[in-house]
Design a protein around this nucleic acid. Sequence first.
RNA 1: GCGCGGUUAGCUCAGCGGUAGAGCACUACAAUGACACUGUAGGGGUCGUAGGUUCAAAUCCUAUACCGCGCACCA
Length: 915
Amino acid sequence: MSEIPKSYEPRDVEKRWYAAWLEAGCFKGRAQPGREHYSIVIPPPNVTGVLTMGHVLNNTLQDILIRRARLEGKSAVWVPGTDHAGIATQTVVERELRKQKVHRRDLGREKFVEKVWSWREEKGGIILEQLRRLGASCDWDRTQFTMDPHYSRAVLGVFVDLFRKGNIYRGKRMVNWCPASLTALSDEEVIMKPQKGFLYKVRYELVDRPGEFIQVATTRPETIPGDVAIAVHPDDPRYTALIGTKVWRPLVRAQIPIIADSAVDKEFGAGSLKVTPAHDRVDFEIGQRHSLEVRDVLNPNGTLNDLAGPELAGMDRFAGRKKSAELLEASGNLVAAEPYENNIGYSERADVPIEPRLTWQWWLRYPRVEEAKQVVRDGVIRFHPDRWEKVYLHWLDSIQDWCISRQLWWGHRIPVWYRKGIERETLTEADLRDPAKLHVSLDGPPDPENWEQEEDVLDTWASSWLWPFATMGWPDETAMREQNLATFYPTSTLVTGPDIIFFWVARMIMAGLEYMNPGEPIEQRVPFRNVYFTGIIRDGQGRKMSKSLGNSPDPLDLIDKFGADGLRFGIISIAPQGQDIRFQEDRIEAGRNFCNKLWNASRFRQMSGPMGDNSSVDAILSRLEPAKFDADDHAILLGLLRLESEITDAFAKFEFSGAVQKLYTFFWSDFCDWYVEVSKSKLQPPSSSDSGAPRDESLKGNCLAIQDLVLRQVLLLLHPFTPFITEELWHGLGYGAEGTFIQDQSPGFAKEFEARIGSLDAAAAAQVEQLKASSNQVRALKAEYNLASKRDVKLSLTATDAQWAILSSSLAGFTRMAGAAEVIRTPEPQPGPSIVTALGTFTLDLASQVDPAAEKQRLAKELEKVRGHIAGTEARLANKAFTDKAPPAVIDGAKKQLADLRDKAAEMERLIAAL
RNA sequence: GCGCGGUUAGCUCAGCGGUAGAGCACUACAAUGACACUGUAGGGGUCGUAGGUUCAAAUCCUAUACCGCGCACCA
């Protein structure tokens, strides 16, 4: 490498290596016998999607796991793909069409679906392209789409199977109806929001006693034309006499009965409830119990229909609300309208209030509910963090049947055919099982001319719940073999957000248990063994990032600005396990800075001396001369070994931000700020400002080899987090031959080190801590006297022989680090600014410039601090309870500390007296 | 109403029994053969509040306040 730029420039490096990885097939998932496997399926983003910060976090984590698995020699695969995302995609395309003043009805179903497909062809790959920029090492040849022919067959096949098993039925029930998307939604797609409105108190006149009234409260007066009864609590003495009598409905005037039902809350309002079975879940149930008519006054799009009466018909539900209140007021039946706030359900996608609506839908009774609970309770599947287990189990405990039909065109059309001429409204449960009336199959009836296919499509999640195995060829035997389903299922880890724990995670578990590896142990049937829940990325104000708020930075801009590695490193560093994340660009900047530091440390290594044989760990180890290790060498190597085990541990615990933090601190503080700086005194030719001790060539050789070793291992540990720069430097520093890749190596070196070098000296590492602390103190003293940090000062030192032994063995390094020209041992303290350290008392050679009074004051102030410490420690040791009960190590520590502090105080007193 | 998080330096967050940490920001110094995307030093916190357990509490327990989220909801 000749011309190395001063700062790391990611753009070219990223492009080059990503192409090289693809070219070499580095990401290909192969089943390799004898190797452990590691597999991940991507949570499929919507085909309509573009990359968000959420995707960046989520996919970086997956990439980290999969790249680490490759380093560990596992046979790894990461399966990518996209989701057809029924409502979302259909809405996007409809919006596009509307710009051209076209409605989907104008096109008709077939043409419209064609449009969506061509739209997908055009824009559907964007997000996957963006993932490549991030560095995602997916096996792209396996890219899946939930509407691919083979995938669709899996989805419809499951429908047919579950229908035959009796889990799927057609039923007329109250559903969550979205008046904007014109479809039913599952309970999970409804979000509750508080809404300000009015509570209207309305009086209904008693038929038998004109002039007397019963009062009810409602937030929705526009539904009064749908009232079919007034309900009171059976035990409510106020109304016992009225039960069974009739009242006049004030809008679309008619007689309706007063009934008794215990669902009524006696305490709320007047304790009486208007019953509108078509427009409220509770009312519907009351209606069922009392065989009441269902009087639907709304059209599917949320406007009022003719049953609402001529004044209201045709109006939107919200305008109708206002109008109906006016009508009630005009007729004198509105008693009051009080401001009121209540929670109402909104369609998650369309963001409009949903309507409870009675419609025919397809329902699924979930299979394997008990097993799904059991696998999580027993730890067959582990959640990280585990608190989500509770949420998951609670949902399964109160699980309701799943409404799987959607009144959309974009999706998997339900494989059900009705015999022509059949009255669908009256089909009974038995009729559904009668092949003369209903045909359910994958390929349709043999005589299609006599049948009509169901118009509805399946909920998107009714396809994505098969993702962990339908992406690997299931249920086609040949495809399963080709795609190594037997090897890669169950997958290893699922990385996803807790917001889809019900939508997706729970359902995948049930689907896996129902369909995979029947008869085998439950460990083989679950879809994954670990679920890592990420936090949600919020903006600086804590708001969720969303397109509509425009508060989400474009990750591609961040990649341009800071590099993919910088972005990855930064985002992981602010993403502690399971905690929401406030996005701050300066952390991404810190990620870039770290990459730059790594780059420059490598650059420095190249400039420091000739590169030795770096082709393997053993090659580097054989260059070491352990007999000549100095304290710094011991310390940095111990640190490197510790780092290796800490990172291994962090992966086991899914603590990625902790891992990143450890790598950062070790590399920047321990290696660059200390080891490399100390190295300079060994590596650089003596200069005039240095004390001119001759360089020992073996010291230099050790130093370079150790730098090579540290850099090598750090690159390996870092590679999953920052793949591009580590690959670049891996080759730049000669660790890997051309045509090989960093991922082919093992991340650890502890075993080889143990075998070749043996153990290191922990005492030496402790000495380095003293050297660091002492040099810090000297620097601080210099700063206090406004001396530049350059080496331009003579230090004199009074020290015991033991202290001097430590210091003299590292004298050149220490002198450099303390920022001194030289350190001279003197028997007695010299006059001048002094500092008492663990390695002796250092004095700046500034005698003439020092004001003794000021120096006295400075020392006195510091002495006071030390005495405070002494007093505290003495008190602790004097406490019998402490000495009796605290562990010996703690007590010894306190004693040692006290002794050191007393020595220090004595020395300071001596200095003060001498002034 | 039930459940789950959070409350630590100006900001964003680690720490989760042994006398407070990081990054950013701030102050001062440093144009040096790796790096100004840098180096050195510094200021800044009675760890939400009140009790309790313990020789020892930011850390464990109990209450409580505030912020956020989820589930269930009374019209």
